[in-house]
């Protein structure tokens, strides 16, 4: 097991290297010039060129890559062109929103998705199951921004239960009631994702209930409830846990649309804004960090298999 973990961690190194090359070349293929963006409409070509030089953008592309990579190895992600501060600090600043939002959404997703999915599987093919299926299919088919806008109109503008937008820091202010700013975004995000988890839980429960050892357990005369909990649910957890792992990463970075609708200072929106501003170091930094996070979760998910399913052993 330990050897396996070491091997997996080591194999992340070439992957990260490849990721850094891909990210860097993608970003630098985007047409546009950060210096020009920064100076605005009235800047003369000479002024722009001079700023490009100051920013090191006039160096050959491979040189820029190695400077960037060298910096990262020393823990320095560079300086944001737009914010004039360290990219790492910018990311950490934004990470608070994204992590809180992802955590809140995933909590909702687990709280809704798993029990409803189990219920649906236990009452397989009943009218209840069919209604759940139809409903979850419906929620999985709604564009998130459309859902978010409607939530905002209803719960913020009409009912005034929740604030419309923004998110004042919780960690800086210590004011946990600020989490109320994230309730609507979390609901928006969890609607389609819970729907997917409902369906996944249901289908993996059904798959597991047909497995041999489950049949044996039933044959032994164990009660249906015990079988469902001990054997079926436990085994179906594997795919659910792995899906939740990836949903979490997707939620950290893939909430661009929701963050835009609710104007949240999160990582996803930062990428879009940085793209429009041509803030190369910031985009590169975020995407690389998120890719790293994804690889870590991937590893954790694989390892969790071993804990949840005694049949899987890594050597």
């Amino acid at each position: 097991m330990f050897a396996y973990i070491v091997r997996r961690v080591l194999s992340m190194i070439p992957s990260l290297l490849l990721a850094s090359i891909l990210v860097f070349s993608f970003i630098h293929m985007i047409p546009g010039d950060p210096a020009q963006m920064m100076l605005g409409d009235m800047a003369t070509p000479e002024q722009t060129e001079a700023l490009r030089e100051t920013m090191g953008l006039d160096r050959p592309i491979y040189a820029q890559y190695f400077i960037w990579l060298g910096g990262i190895l020393k823990g320095d992600f560079g300086t944001s062109i737009f914010f004039h501060q360290s990219v790492w600090d910018v990311i950490v600043d934004r990470a608070e929103t994204s992590l809180f939002l992802a955590a809140m959404s995933i909590t909702l997703i687990i709280a809704i998705g798993v029990p409803v999915g189990v219920l649906s599987a236990v009452r397989c093919n009943s009218a209840l199951d069919q209604s759940i299926s139809a409903l979850s299919m419906f929620f999985a088919s709604i564009p998130t921004f459309w859902l978010g806008l409607n939530f905002m109109m209803l719960f913020s503008v009409s009912l005034k239960w929740f604030p419309t937008s923004g998110f004042p820091s919780v960690l800086a202010s210590g004011d946990w009631t600020n989490l109320r700013y994230l309730v609507l975004p979390a609901l928006t995000l969890s609607a389609p994702n819970s729907a997917l988890i409902v369906r996944l839980t249901r289908s993996s429960m059904l798959d597991a209930s047909h497995a041999d050892h489950v049949r044996t357990a039933r044959a032994k005369g164990l009660s249906e409830g015990t079988v469902n909990v001990r054997h079926v649910f436990r085994n179906s957890l594997i795919s659910v846990v792995s899906a939740l792992g990836f949903t979490f990463v997707a939620l950290v970075a893939g909430t661009v649309v929701t963050e835009t609708v609710f104007s949240l200072p999160g990582v996803g929106r930062l990428v879009v804004e940085s793209l429009l501003r041509r803030d190369y170091p910031t985009i590169q930094g975020i995407i690389l960090v998120v890719a790293f996070l994804y690889m870590c979760i991937n590893l954790l998910v694989d390892l969790s298999f071993a804990f949840l399913d005694p049949r899987i052993r890594y050597s």
Binding site: A19, V249, G268, V271
Partner: peptide
């Protein structure tokens, strides 16, 4: 490695 990039962000880039 490509899968490690968030899909929507990759599409945006």
């Amino acid at each position: 490695v490509m899968m490690a990039f968030p899909p929507l962000l990759l599409a945006l880039v």
